[in-house]
């Protein structure tokens, strides 16, 4: 019974998400001011040929700072989860 219920919930959720996707307009807006601004001024302001790196590390630098912090936090989480337990105590001998 519980299995059928979970399958039904999954199907309803999938149908709901697919219904939302059908209403999305991809490729719209086709024209954005920011794209042209980055392409026109990126090489002059940041002196970089790679516009993607210009956006990721300079125009959206705070976003990359957040990404680095997320990676740092993820590694700390893994280190907490996989530390060694020996009889209630844990040690970091390595």
């Amino acid at each position: 019974m519980r299995r059928y219920l979970s399958v039904a919930v999954m199907l309803i959720l999938a149908a709901f998400l697919m219904f939302i996707v059908t209403g999305l307009t991809f490729g719209n807006p086709q024209y954005a001011d920011m794209d042209d601004y980055f392409i026109q001024n990126g090489q002059e302001q940041i002196a970089t040929n790679n516009i993607v790196t210009t956006i990721v590390f300079d125009y959206r630098g705070f976003d990359t700072l957040g990404e680095s912090t997320v990676l740092f936090t993820a590694v700390i989480g893994v280190a907490m989860l996989f530390r060694k337990f020996t009889g209630g105590e844990y040690d970091e001998d390595e």
Binding site: Q43, E44, I46, T48, N49, F57
Partner: peptide, 22 residues
């Protein structure tokens, strides 16, 4: 170093602090 506008082969000694960040 500065880079000219438009397509060009590129130079390693450009981009300010982006290489430091990388």
């Amino acid at each position: 170093m500065s880079v000219p506008y438009g397509p060009n082969p590129g130079e390693l000694n450009t981009a300010g602090f982006l290489p430091l960040m990388n």
